[in-house]
């Protein structure tokens, strides 16, 4: 599970995250919502140790990410589908990750199948991938270590409608198997269908946390979103 405890992040006077606390329990999909620049990605980067919190702690499975041994076996993450070397094939990218994590190389073809990348696409250099294919590759890499926790930053971005339906099913079935999943998105209808919990932030602050159905309370998520956020929540800058 994932725990953010009173995280504040300051960048030279600008406050990116302001006293953010929430948890993602096992067996749940937590939808992470908020306007551009609200701090979603920053929170995820702090969780994975890419950035340091000014105040507060973020833990995965009870430890700081950097203290996990071989974290890829416990936590799968996709923050930026572009963070792949364009000159490598998708398959080679996954093989490198598999070697590093000590996962059998046979897993590589399994996850490629699972995310719907064909053999031919797998042996194509990533330079030639569409955004949707890059997202699938990133999700494949996140799944490679058979993690119990998933951190996905806008994984639906660039996916075609089939891809979105597939992602929804995948994420739901992983959560039903006990995974803790934190998923950010701007696609409110998608999130509404898949997330059992919602964390909404704006301007670096938590605006709402709770079960999706209770928060939406008779309306839909879009209604709640526009109630809680304003254009000025696009932070911080």
């Amino acid at each position: 599970m994932i725990e953010f405890t009173r995280i504040t992040k300051r960048y030279r006077g600008r406050i990116a995250l302001d006293d953010v606390s929430f948890t993602v329990p096992p067996g749940s999909v937590t939808g992470f919502l908020g306007p551009n620049g609200a701090g979603k990605t920053t929170a995820m980067r702090i969780l994975l140790g890419h950035a340091r919190a000014t105040v507060g702690t973020a833990t995965v499975l009870g430890s700081r990410y950097a203290e996990l041994h071989n974290p890829g076996r416990h936590v799968g993450s996709l923050l930026d589908a572009g963070a792949v070397h364009p000159g490598r094939t998708g398959r080679e990218t996954l093989r490198l990750a598999a070697r590093m994590m000590g996962v059998p190389i046979s897993h590589v073809d399994e996850v490629l199948d699972r995310v719907g990348l064909t053999r031919r696409e797998g042996t194509t250099r990533v330079r030639g991938y569409s955004l949707g294919m890059r997202q699938r590759l990133g999700i494949a890499q996140a799944l490679l270590g058979e993690p119990r926790v998933l951190v996905l930053d806008e994984p639906a971005n660039g996916l075609d409608p089939q891809g979105m339906a597939w992602l929804r099913t995948l994420v739901r079935s992983l959560a039903d198997d006990g995974c803790a999943i934190l998923l950010s998105s701007h696609l409110l209808h998608e999130v509404e269908q898949v997330a059992d919990r919602i964390v909404m932030i704006g301007n670096g602050r938590v605006l709402a946390v709770g079960p999706t159905r209770e928060l939406a309370a008779g309306h839909d998520l879009e209604y709640l979103y526009f109630q809680l956020t304003t254009p000025t929540d696009r932070s911080a800058a």
Partner: peptide, 26 residues
């Protein structure tokens, strides 16, 4: 949920770090 929680903590205790030779290899 409690079963899941206990199994995940068991995994994180039992796993070892990535051996350095593997990092060199990769």
């Amino acid at each position: 949920i409690s079963r899941t929680a206990s199994s995940t903590s068991a995994i994180s205790i039992s796993s070892s770090s990535i051996p350095f030779h593997r990092l060199i290899n990769v």
